[in-house]
Design a protein around this nucleic acid. Structure first.
Lengths: 354, 354
DNA sequence: ACCGTCGTAGCAAGCGCTTTCTATCGGTGA
DNA sequence: TCACCGATAGAAAGCGCTTGCTACGACGGT
């Protein structure tokens, strides 16, 4: 039924060992023999049996890329870049080709662990974890343990846009983290500079690192401006990283403080929802109220008005993570690199009305 | 170093066969024995060796989901839904859990084939192909052949948002196709009804089925209104499915026909680019010119003005494809189901000025 | 009390490939 | 001319798991 190495060997009148060596190209095989084998492979339309070779060689060419939400371009862009870098990593001979697969955790710690186990099962060559992590002690411990297990099974572990795992130290090959705190700080400073004082903040899910860091940056800026204290809590609303959440949170913010002059959203998608809510309330942006996002996703520049936001080099980061995962690029010193964001001032922010 | 089935067996004082059966749960094992085994698994922190079991069982729990562009929510939504449906397909015992992985082809036929081969290598349980296909005879033949090969290796093949492969007939388990033609037609009819006559069309890449079908629908509507002929070609511009392409194409259309009263875009992303271009030209939407998109991606309702478009039930389609891939749902009669789009009339279209 | 059965568990033969070790052969330098 | 060597190719031993078949008690019907 299915063609095996032995069939190819028979056809090429050589031993299976020779065929294997031709295919893997890491052993001297006479040119004439090689050609004969290759022809047989072609004629028989032979396809290597992945599991069998993974079993025998104790390695596989699978690279897993874990994302929180595949429908969100934030992850899509990073994953696409990583996959690209990985697929083209060693385009040379067979075996150099890695299969990058992206796994959607939906933000659930359990699914993340499940996928990690599944990848461990497959003896994945590398794993790339993207996006913020959940800050639950149990989960962090479980993840760290799993990563350690993976690492000493030879799987490379790369973090992209996620803070280094505290306990997993040596397990992680490299960690690329975004400067969410700094970006959040600069964004709010921009608003403060424009003269805003009553600034609402729409945060993401409370337990995620990304959420916390961006919020911390915001608060640091507020406090530095003498606007700290309890007022901050009143003007902060948590929600999911989606449009709807931004819409609802904005309404809530307006309810708490009708004289709000600016809203900072956890990310661009949320900001879009916020804009919609504001418009529905009859408020003009930025005349009546300013809005800012985070990430600078592709659609943000086309929003009306164009969104002021913090640009994160998602594509570059993903590509770099991919290269680190394939070992094409050397890890940064210390294994950790922080990637900064760039403040993009656009039309959605302006001076407060009064 | 690594724990194997045999280790677990030794620890539980049973044979490897028994352990295997406990883990796969498809053979009677006494409760007490089972428990002992499970405990050993736990204590040893055993993880099944995927390749080994795939080799022995000649099947794997991998399901591949191929997408053209993972950074595009159009695909992200479908892929996420499929992955969800697949992962939760048989959450019962181990083994029922499938690993859905998404592979990003970047729209390249070669990469598509490469991934298909890679999945074939892994003896994937199923493959889901999403999005339009490239209409190149060679590639279609190659794909059909590959799918046939996969199919008779026992891999289920599901098409989602892609027209049935002509030559692959029996190879395909099920095909879910979007009624792009009908949607395109209705969209243009809507514009015609409003009174538009000079309607520009921004199409996607020429060689893709999705592009062709949507365009055909548009033209059918135009012709039915007596607006056929060569004028259509003049008012059609091809480009990629991205924002930038929409921007550029719009400028080109305006150059060709300054008196344009409406622009229909290949999809929402392109439409957004079109809106940006029009705004930059000082044109008001919909007062001076109407714009329509396709897909109804999440951000479309938040665009300003909200985008008139054709809603495609992306999530539902993806989920269904996932279920078909896992065999959780029976294929539609004939293996083919056409999914209709719903015209969403919003603020970006209105009566022409004059 | 005997034998067919049912319920469990073990044996052992692979699954298809990689890789170490060994064999072979045409040179080569002395 | 002969021992020796480099370059290739083959033999065979697994890699860790699944599964068909066999083995073995304990039951229950007659």
């Amino acid at each position: 039924m299915t063609v095996t190495l032995a069939d190819v060997a028979a056809r090429a009148r050589v031993s299976p060992a020779t065929v294997s060596r031709v295919l893997n190209g890491n052993y001297p095989v006479a040119a004439s023999t090689r050609e004969r084998v290759l022809r047989a492979v072609d004629e028989l339309d032979y396809v290597l049996n992945g599991p069998a070779s993974a079993l025998a060689a104790a390695t596989s060419d699978l690279v897993g890329v874990l994302v929180n939400d595949i429908a969100d371009p934030f992850f899509g862009i990073m994953a696409g870049a990583a996959q690209h870098a990985i697929g083209d990593g060693a385009p040379g001979r067979a075996g150099g080709e890695k299969l990058a697969v992206v796994c959607n955790t939906g933000g659930s710690p359990e699914r993340e662990l499940t996928y990690l186990t599944l990848l461990q099962r497959q003896r994945a060559a590398a794993v790339v974890l993207t996006g913020g992590a959940v800050e639950d002690a149990d989960h962090i411990a479980a993840t760290a343990a799993k990563l350690a297990r993976l690492a000493d099974a030879g799987t490379r572990v790369v973090l992209c846009g996620r803070p280094p795992v505290p306990a997993a130290g040596e397990a992680v090959t490299a960690a690329l983290t975004f400067d969410n705190r700094g970006g959040g700080k600069r964004l709010t400073e921009h608003l403060l500079t424009l003269g805003h004082r009553r600034i609402g903040y729409i945060a993401g899910p409370a337990e995620r690192t990304t959420t916390r860091h961006r919020l911390e940056g915001h608060r640091a800026a507020m406090e530095a401006a003498g606007l700290g204290g309890r007022g901050l809590d009143r003007l902060t609303v948590h929600g999911r990283y989606d449009r709807r959440s931004g819409y609802d949170a904005t309404l809530e913010l307006l309810r708490r403080e009708p004289r709000l002059t600016a809203v900072v959203a956890a990310n661009d998608t949320v900001a879009l929802g916020a804009c919609a809510a504001l418009r529905d309330q009859g408020l003009r942006i930025p005349d009546d109220i300013s809005v800012a996002g985070f990430d600078d996703l592709p659609f943000s520049v086309d929003a009306v008005p164009a969104l002021t936001t913090v640009r994160l080099p998602l594509y570059e980061a993903g590509a770099r993570a991919g290269r680190l995962a394939t070992g094409t690029e050397a890890p940064p010193p210390g294994g950790i690199a922080t990637i900064g964001g760039e403040l993009m001032v656009r039309a959605s922010t302006g001076r407060p009305a009064s």
